[in-house]
């Protein structure tokens, strides 16, 4: 179960594209060895928040601190490759695999940073154990995999860098319900077996709520609800937001 040490503290983060403000002062924390789910329907700013954390979007204001054994590293304003070096890995929206590289070559791309290169053999082996289908298809071009396999490859590729914090943007998008169930149990396994800290965005409340320790709901670029697993499940606002609104 989740500890109380926080791995990521976001405070009053503001960001947008050109003149359009998307995030209006977002504050949240992600606790060590937890699965934290950021819920919300399309177009509310969930992806933008993850892009800020991964360095793909530069925030206009606010801070996102990665606590690195006491000393916090400010992620806001860092380049994507520096953020990977600091121990944060993003599984991006749409997976963004390299379709013309093989499954194994995609995984090895994930191990590009120096500290991960040294461990690429053992990491490749553990990814094969975690996702046997990727081991079976290691010589196949990534572009020829099914949607579910591609999502697994995208997660495995991100794990090849040995991240402290794994960000996953909408893992269930476009996948069949049975594939989503399997994927969620894999994400749960990452926390339970490997002690990973995960922040993921989701539109799919019932599936995400099953594995979430903590949940946040974002509406129009603001956090409107924060709570633990039980509260997400019971909360009137959550029900109203998802069932009615």
């Amino acid at each position: 179960m989740a500890s109380n040490q926080s791995v990521l503290s976001i405070e009053n983060l503001q960001a947008g594209y050109g003149g359009v403000r998307v995030l209006h002062g977002v504050s949240m924390t992600v606790k060590e060895r937890s699965v934290t789910v950021l819920l919300g329907t399309n177009g509310n700013g969930k992806s933008t928040l993850l892009k800020c954390l991964a360095g793909l979007v530069t925030p206009d204001a606010g801070s996102a601190k990665l606590s690195d054994d006491g000393a916090g590293v400010e992620l806001a304003g860092m380049h994507p490759y520096e953020i990977v070096e600091a121990g944060v890995s993003l599984v991006p929206d749409g997976r963004r695999l390299f379709p013309l590289l093989t499954v194994e070559e995609n995984l090895l791309m994930g191990a590009f940073k120096k500290s991960a290169r040294k461990r690429h053999k053992e990491n490749l082996k553990s990814m094969g154990e975690l996702f046997p289908v990727l081991r079976e298809r290691k010589g196949q071009l990534a572009g020829t995999l099914s949607g579910g396999e591609q999502q697994m490859l995208a997660i495995a590729r991100a794990l090849m860098s040995n991240p402290k914090l794994l960000l996953i943007d909408e893992p269930s998008l476009g996948l069949a319900p049975i594939v989503i169930t399997k994927l969620m149990s894999t994400i749960k396994e990452l926390r339970d077996k490997y002690g990973l800290t995960i922040l993921m965005t989701e539109q799919n409340l019932p599936q995400a709520a099953k594995i979430a320790d903590w949940g946040y709901i974002m509406v129009h670029g603001k956090i409107v609800f924060a709570g633990d697993a039980q509260q997400i499940h019971d909360n009137e606002l959550v029900r109203r937001y998802y069932l009615v609104g």
Partner: peptide, 25 residues
């Protein structure tokens, strides 16, 4: 095909932003 830098050259042709998410500039 066999080195980290070489694979990254092939990858950058396909998706430069994804390459930056792998920790490569």
């Amino acid at each position: 095909s066999r080195t980290f830098r070489g694979r990254a050259i092939r990858a950058v042709a396909q998706d430069a932003q994804a390459v930056s998410l792998m920790g490569a500039k």
